[in-house]
Design a protein around this nucleic acid. Structure first.
Lengths: 189, 189
DNA sequence: GCGCCATATATCGGAAAGATACGTATCGGC
DNA sequence: GCCGATACGTATCTTTCCGATATATGGCGC
């Protein structure tokens, strides 16, 4: 998904400024499976504007510089729905963490341990964040959007599995690394 | 991880040409958590070469154009190990699939069903691929590298969880979408 | 004999990301 | 009363990256 489409998606949920769109990718529900920075959002909005897919109005603010609030035009809405009809591209997953652990045999045991522990904490935190957000939505009056809930559940489930795996296999890895080091020391003699 | 480091990583496992490095990211164990295309690999190798981190020798081949086989220099090996000491950047996960499902309420039921079914098949296939590769390694003489096995196990486990979640929640999602459509029809009357 | 696929190197253009610049306002601590 | 951190807000610049493309050859099936 290119950043233009992502902007259309955010705007389909309500008007927003460039800054607010960025926040949607930092904190909102999108944050777990899409992202975009200022370097992509502002050029995307300019182009959407000149293509007539969004409209902008300057909103005065006391003190702060004007906010440019963008809203979807009918043409932009149509373009967004057209994008929803296309075939999804393959997911991308990139992990420096797994890259490092792949070379665990070249890393001191203490550091391996620390890397894994930190990662478990991170995954647990993400898991709890999603749980919390879902609980908040569940307690509010409006029934949650089924798609939103399904996606949130997917994320929650994956973070839990990831943390579970790390917890379950951490000691085995450490033990195997020790064994390996012992063997290679013997071989070197 | 920038592509230069990724090239060093592949070369640390043995000499290779640019084409072979690409294949390592398409089929090898790296493929599940890092990737790189020709457009990044060749420039990266040129720069590593001029920085003295790799050496190249042309290997003649009958018919085919010469293969340029790169190998790590001591300086390149040092740079690689230095990279292993740095703090890993945050993982990136991007999914058009989840993006689409987030907007499931705007998508026809048949298509939602198809998208999920295809995705389950994809995850199961990936899961089985890793299982197969691990089984092959287990049956060979050489004991697997603990880091490699740990990372492979992580991937296998995640693909399984992802497929399990989709299977377990597919019908619930569809039912909720039907309910939603019924309600909004009633509301429109 | 034709097209397609695998091997193989290399570049180009566009998209994207991170860093940075430029500004204002608030809030807490010292 | 001042300083730094944080939040709000728009925008560009440079590096990096990726997909498409160009160029070549050989094998295989049809």
């Amino acid at each position: 998904m290119d950043v233009r489409t992502l902007c259309l998606a955010v705007l389909s949920k309500g008007d927003a400024s460039g800054y607010e769109i960025k926040k949607a990718f930092e904190e909102g529900p999108f944050s777990h499976f899409q992202r975009a920075g200022f370097g992509s959002i502002y050029p995307a909005l300019s182009r959407l504007l000149s293509d007539g897919m969004v409209e902008a109005r300057a909103q005065e603010q006391n003190g702060r510089p004007d906010k440019k609030v963008y809203s979807l035009t009918p043409s932009g809405m149509a373009a967004f729905h057209h994008q929803l009809e296309g075939e999804p591209e393959a997911d991308t997953f990139r992990s420096d963490f797994l890259f490092l652990l792949f070379f665990a045999a070249q890393i001191p045991e203490r550091r391996v341990r620390m890397l894994i522990d930190r990662r478990i904490a991170l995954y647990r935190e993400r898991q709890r964040t999603i749980e919390q957000q879902r609980a908040d939505r569940a307690s509010s009056e409006t029934p949650g959007d089924p798609g939103h809930e399904f996606v949130a559940g997917f994320g929650e489930s994956l973070y839990r599995s990831a943390a579970d795996y790390l917890e379950a296999n951490r000691e085995t890895l450490i033990a195997e690394l020790r064994e390996l080091r012992k063997t290679s020391r013997v071989a070197a003699e």
